[in-house]
């Protein structure tokens, strides 16, 4: 990757949505919205709620399915010169590898992010994320069908994220990304009803940054493959915290909604930071936490 800046799955569409805002080729890695074997309509509305310095979502992985993705979304992605990682989810361990197998011949796909973590899908989703054995097996199956990089995306909604990290490392993952959203709930006090149709959803945005950072720190200490930091990154300074605790790259999520040009700004601020601090390459700060 040309830089450690990536965009998080489900917050950047299929990149096309951001074409008029940013130079997509300046982003180190683009992660697509989750793709599943069959198409999915997604959850009933309301799917989103704004909370203090954050938001809850329960989108439910709507997508056109892997065939639809290849037909409708790939033509645009093909034009990009940067790395495209397809985020993949499945109801069963086999489905992960089926989707990956279908995509693996496509040159445009640089690698995969396995979504072991979406809190908004009833079937499966969470069991991959919370059960180390299932996560390991799903990773193994995908490893069998691809030589390309595999990133396992982990949920923070577990007792020990380090344990899941170790499991996917054993399963053959090349990196982990963390975190996906935290389970959260918001109530409309006028109607006494939950603000989301699915009652609970996933919390993202600035509100989660310190807890996400702690999870990333825990992972860095537990495993030896690279960790990609995600959670509440809105500025380069936020991203820098992740790099300092040891993340080798980071993903920007919710910030894209508010400022669709945030990736470019973070890149500029990163270059400026390096210049001002006599740093040749941003890699130098990775893991430089002083304790």
């Amino acid at each position: 990757m040309i830089n450690p800046i990536m965009v998080a799955s489900g917050t950047f569409g299929y990149a096309e949505e951001f074409e008029s805002f940013v130079n997509l080729n300046k982003i180190g890695g683009i992660i697509t919205k989750t793709v599943t074997l069959e198409s999915r309509p997604g959850n009933p509305p309301p799917r989103i709620a704004e909370t203090s310095s954050g938001m809850l979502n329960s989108i439910g992985l709507p997508n056109v399915g892997v065939e639809g993705f290849i037909r409708l979304k790939m033509p645009f992605l093909k034009k990009l010169k940067t790395h495209v990682f397809v985020n993949v989810a499945g109801k069963t361990t086999e489905q992960f590898s089926q989707v990956v197998e279908r995509l693996d011949q496509l040159e445009t796909v640089s690698g995969y992010e396995l979504n072991f973590s979406c809190p908004n899908v009833k079937e499966g989703g969470l069991s991959f994320s919370s059960d180390p054995n299932t996560a390991e097996r799903a990773t193994q199956l995908v490893r069998k069908v691809t030589q390309k990089p595999i990133i396992a995306k982990l949920t923070p909604n577990v007792t020990s994220i380090g344990q899941i990290g170790k499991a996917v490392e054993n399963g053959g993952a090349d990196a982990v990304s963390a975190v996906n959203t935290f389970v959260g709930l918001a109530i409309d006090t006028q109607t006494f009803r939950p603000k989301l149709a699915t009652i609970t959803g996933g919390l993202s945005g600035p509100a989660i940054k310190p807890i996400a950072l702690a999870k990333v720190y825990e992972l860095v200490k537990s495993i030896s493959i690279p960790v990609i930091g995600i959670g509440g990154i809105f500025s380069f300074n936020d991203a820098l915290e992740y790099l300092i605790v040891g993340a080798t790259a980071f993903q920007i999520g919710t910030a894209n909604f508010v400022n669709p040009r945030v990736t470019e700004q973070i890149l500029n601020d990163m270059l400026l930071y390096c210049e001002n601090h006599n740093i040749n390459h941003i890699e130098e700060v990775i893991g430089s936490i002083k304790i």
């Binding site: 917050t11 949505e17 009933p44 309301p46 799917r47 989108i59």
Partner: peptide, 24 residues
């Protein structure tokens, strides 16, 4: 509808089609 982005990226602002009132 409530909107987190306004430009098609979050998929939060879903409106249900009448032809799908029954079923999926």
């Amino acid at each position: 509808n409530l909107m987190a982005c306004g430009f098609g990226a979050c998929m939060g602002c879903a409106v249900r089609l009448a032809r799908s009132a029954e079923g999926e």
